[in-house]
C-alpha cells in the first residue's frame, strides 16, 4: 500500500491513490449537524454525481474537499494529500455555478490572471481555444452571456490540468446541445484519468452521465451506486399485467412484493424482486401483456431523501413503506 506516501514513490504508483478519500467525516455549525458521518472513496477516472436536496450537506462536503472548511471530526484526503496541499499543487479545481468573476476584466485577462497563480499551467491561448472562447478573448466579462461566463469558469478550472474536478450545477443555463457537448468533453477528460464529482439538480443528467450516483440526505449517504442500482434500491420496479380478478391470486403474499394495485383488468405489482413476480404471473396465472418498468430517478430521489426525521438507510425507507 503506497497510496499515502507520495515522496519517493514511482509515478506508476500514483494511480493507486484514490482521488478522494473521506473517512468518518462530520461537520457541525454550532447546534446544526450539517454532515453526520460520511465515508466515501472515489477512484481516479470516475464520474460521480452528488445528489441531494438543499441542506443535505452536499455543499458542506464539497467545501471541505476544497479545503475551504475543516471537518469537525474525521479526515479528508485528495490524491493522498490534505485538500489545501492538493489545491496549491493544482490537483483540484472547481467550477462554481455563479459569481467568481471580475466584471471589469477581459476574458483573456481573467485566464492570464488565474494562470499566473499556478506553478504549471497549460498555455492561455490553448485553454481559450479548447473552451471555445478564443473569439471573445478581448471582451469584458460583464459583456459575456451566462453560457460564455460558464465556459470561462470551465477554462479557468482546466488551466492547471486538475486530477479532480468539482462541478456545482455545471450545465445550468446551457441548452440541450451545449449540455451534450459539455458532457462529451467531460467524458474525454475522465478517460485521461481525471475524476469528476458534480452536484446537480438535473436528476436525468446524473442518470445519463455519471458512472456512479451518491445520494446524500440529512448529512448522510443514503445510496451509492449506478443510476439503475439507485433506482432499484429506492422503490424496486413495477410489473404491470392484464389479469382479470387479480385479487384472487394472492399476489401480495409473494416474496419481495411491496404493494398491489388493481385498476380494472390491469394489475400493478410494486416489488423489489420483479423477476419472481413475473415468473409467477406467467406460469401460475393467466396474466398476459406483461411490462416491467423501473421508477424514474426522480421517484428514487424523493423516496430516499424524503424521510425528514431520522436519516434512515435505504433499506429502512423501502421496507415498511408500501406504495
Amino acid at each position: 500500500m503506497t497510496q499515502t506516501s507520495l515522496s519517493g514513490t514511482a509515478g506508476s504508483d500514483a494511480r493507486l491513490v484514490p482521488a478522494v478519500q473521506i473517512s468518518g467525516v462530520t461537520k457541525d455549525f454550532g447546534e446544526v449537524h450539517a454532515v453526520r458521518g460520511i465515508d466515501l472513496t472515489l477512484e481516479q477516472g470516475e464520474i460521480v454525481a452528488f445528489l441531494g436536496p438543499n441542506g443535505a450537506g452536499k455543499t458542506t462536503t464539497i467545501d471541505m474537499l476544497l479545503g475551504l472548511s475543516h471537518p469537525t471530526t474525521g479526515s479528508i484526503e485528495v490524491l493522498g494529500l490534505q485538500p489545501r496541499q492538493a489545491i496549491s499543487r493544482g490537483l483540484v479545481s472547481a467550477v462554481m455555478q455563479t459569481g467568481g468573476l471580475l466584471k471589469d476584466l477581459t476574458v483573456r485577462e481573467t485566464v492570464t490572471y488565474t494562470a499566473s497563480l499556478f506553478a504549471h499551467t497549460a498555455p492561455v491561448d490553448d485553454v481559450l481555444r479548447t473552451a471555445g472562447i478564443e473569439s471573445i478573448a478581448d471582451r469584458k466579462v460583464a459583456k459575456c452571456s451566462g453560457g460564455e461566463q460558464q465556459r470561462l469558469r470551465f477554462a479557468m478550472a482546466l488551466l492547471p490540468d486538475p486530477a479532480l474536478l468539482l462541478l456545482d450545477e455545471p450545465t445550468t443555463g446551457m441548452d440541450v446541445e451545449g449540455r451534450r457537448a459539455f458532457w462529451s468533453a467531460i467524458r474525454a477528460d475522465a478517460e485521461q484519468g481525471r475524476t469528476v464529482l458534480f452536484a446537480t439538480h438535473y436528476l436525468e443528467e446524473a442518470d445519463q452521465y455519471a458512472d456512479r450516483i451518491v445520494l446524500i440526505s440529512h448529512g448522510r449517504i443514503v445510496a451509492d451506486g449506478t443510476g439503475s442500482q439507485v433506482k432499484a434500491l429506492a422503490a424496486g420496479r413495477t410489473v404491470r399485467a392484464t389479469l382479470p380478478d387479480a385479487e384472487t391470486y394472492g399476489l401480495a403474499e409473494l416474496p419481495g412484493v411491496d404493494s398491489v394495485d388493481v385498476r380494472g383488468e390491469a394489475v400493478y405489482v410494486h416489488a423489489k424482486d420483479t423477476d419472481t413476480v413475473a415468473r409467477h404471473l406467467l406460469t401460475q396465472t393467466p396474466a398476459h401483456d406483461l411490462e416491467i418498468t423501473a421508477r424514474g430517478l426522480e421517484d428514487a430521489f424523493l423516496s430516499l431523501t424524503g424521510d425528514q426525521d431520522d436519516a434512515a438507510t435505504y433499506t429502512d425507507s423501502i421496507e415498511g413503506t408500501p406504495r
Binding site: L6, S7, T9, G11, A14, R15, V17, Q44, G45, L79, G80, L81, A86, S88, R89, G90, L91, L102, D104, L105, E109, T112, Y113, A115, S116, L117, F118, A119, H120, D161, P162, A163, E191, Q192, G193, R194
Partner: peptide, 30 residues
C-alpha cells in the same frame, strides 16, 4: 494516451505563495 493518469508527485507549489508581476500588472491596468 488513454492510460495516462495524473501523477500528484510531479506537481509543484508556486514560489512566493503565488505573488507575481502578471497579477500586479493586470490589477494596475484595472
Amino acid at each position: 494516451m488513454t492510460t495516462q493518469t495524473i501523477d500528484p508527485t510531479q506537481r509543484r507549489v508556486p514560489s512566493l505563495g503565488g505573488f507575481n508581476l502578471t497579477v500586479l500588472g493586470i490589477e494596475l491596468r484595472r
